[in-house]
Computed example of a mutant assay.
Amino acid sequence: MKLSMGSIIRILIFSFSMISASLVVAQTDDENGGDGLPTQQELTASGPEGTLRGTLTLPVADGAIPDGTPVVLIVPGSGPTDRDGNSPFGISAASYALLAEALAERGIPSVRIDKRGMFGSADAIPNANEVTITAYGDDVLAWTRAIRERLPTTGGGTRCVLPLGHSEGGLVVLAAIARLPDPCGLILVSTPGRPLGTVLRDQLHANPANAPILNEADEAITTLERGEQVNASTLNPALQPLFAPEVQGFLIDAFGYDPAALIAETRVPVLIVQGMRDLQVGEVDARRLADSAPEATLSLVPDVNHVLKAVLSDDKAANLAAYADPDLPIAQDVVEAVTQFLEQIDE
């Protein structure tokens, strides 16, 4: 049976293809400024070898943010996912951009970012594949400093910068939160609760069309979990992009983290948001995270898929179609869960 790479990629949250795309994300400084609507501004932070770039969305054009108002730092998911939540792998849902707009309408500022080596942050490192979870965490710290410099409090206190990690971004912020100066909270959205090797195995096994390649895939994952490289050239051609030599260093690093163990050590308020129609991360992951952190708030949102859009049936085709529909609004249940959590932080 001949398997297309597209059929495999569609069921994977962690394609791990870190190759930088040559797409350009259009940005407009002070977009909508002056008309009473939320305003968007380019924001930069210091990267390892060059500038990290993102978009600051403010509820009001003059940028006057009360001291107690948190700033949400949206940390993107796996692979070449840009600051808006889009990817050259056929994802154009604009989930992060829509979330930022929805939060701004509720008075909450946010920053969404391009990952080091990609898109607007392409100059931050020469090779976007040479990354680790810890390196991405370094950027979370850099962004936190940049946000606090851009939006200082008037009373001399420390601005609350609250990371929101989506998908793989949830693992990044879980690993980074202990290093964050004056952390005030954490939001995990569609975040795996199991080691990524386990999640990847389950996702591959969930698609019957992958049966001919499962033994090879399982062996490759096990090898990487041991910290050893895989000879990708010997694998089925459908698996070679997934286990390409240039991404194996990242895979070995990422497979070494257990999200449940990380959240058990977290000492800040945590919100866990999980869509119940998510084809890639499920309730089992959210509950494993919640069981490891009994004081965390768990929000299971019905009819919401992985890109945070409302899907009103079990039709997989309709679910996947939402991945390419930027006109489909962000799920309001997700926005409400995040807003209510932030209101508690602000008290």
Rank of each mutant, 00 (worst) to 15 (best):
P163H: 05
S167I: 05
G47R: 11
R83G: 09
A296P: 06
T198I: 11
T154M: 13
I272H: 13
Q248C: 00
E42V: 15
R159M: 05
I213S: 05
T153D: 08
N231F: 00
E336I: 11
I187W: 00
A331M: 05
R277I: 04
T134H: 12
L224I: 14
P212F: 09
V301A: 00
G137M: 05
L164C: 04
D325N: 15
L235N: 13
E343L: 11
L151C: 04
V304S: 08
D315C: 14
L328G: 09
I263G: 11
N215H: 12
S121P: 06
Q27G: 14
G117N: 12
V131R: 03
D278F: 14
P88G: 04
E347F: 11
L251A: 08
R53C: 04
T51G: 03
T297M: 11
D29P: 10
D218N: 10
T154C: 13
L162M: 14
F255R: 12
M18K: 06
V284L: 14
M5L: 13
A238E: 01
L3S: 05
V230S: 02
T28G: 14
G54V: 00
F14S: 08
A322P: 13
V338C: 14
T191I: 01
A209K: 11
I345Y: 03
A64M: 06
P212C: 11
A318G: 04
E31R: 15
F243Q: 08
S46Y: 00
G34Y: 11
L164V: 02
G33T: 05
P192D: 03
T223H: 11
E168W: 12
L289M: 00
I177T: 10
L239H: 01
K115S: 07
T51H: 00
G256R: 12
G185F: 02
I91G: 07
L56W: 05
A232W: 04
A94T: 05
A337M: 01
G36D: 06
T28A: 14
R194I: 02
G90Y: 01
A220C: 08
G77Y: 13
N129D: 10
A100G: 15
L214C: 15
I147Q: 08
Y257V: 08
G275T: 06
L151W: 06
E31Y: 15
R267Q: 14
M1W: 01
P109K: 13
A176Y: 06
L196Y: 09
P326R: 08
D62I: 00
L242W: 09
I91F: 13
C160K: 15
D62A: 08
